[in-house]
Amino acid sequence: MALLAGRRVRDAAILLPLGAVLLFLPPYVRLFDRPGFLFNIPLLHAYIFVLWFLGIVLTALLARRLAREAEEETAASGERPPGAER
């Protein structure tokens, strides 16, 4: 993750939600609609919640990189960060 630079981070920030949409749409969610348990949890529930949690972790990692990125950008352009105007 630390190797991801500039443009790649931003591309990842766009691709992540698209990937999430894809995996939460019927063909994929349906794949796990079958009897069975994983860690005492029904397979379907496990799939959705594990995927959801993974998405959150990835978003958090990306968000840190993106925030640093934006900070460097504003520092470079010499402008105040947009939130700090009050």
């Binding site: 959801w52 949690f53 998405g55 959150i56 978003t59 968000a63 925030a67 934006a70 960060p81 939130g83």
Partner: peptide, 21 residues
Amino acid sequence: ADERHLATASWLFPLYLLLIS
């Protein structure tokens, strides 16, 4: 109040929703 809050909300809010669900 600050654009950077979105970066935190981007994962914390989904986590809130996950817990509720």
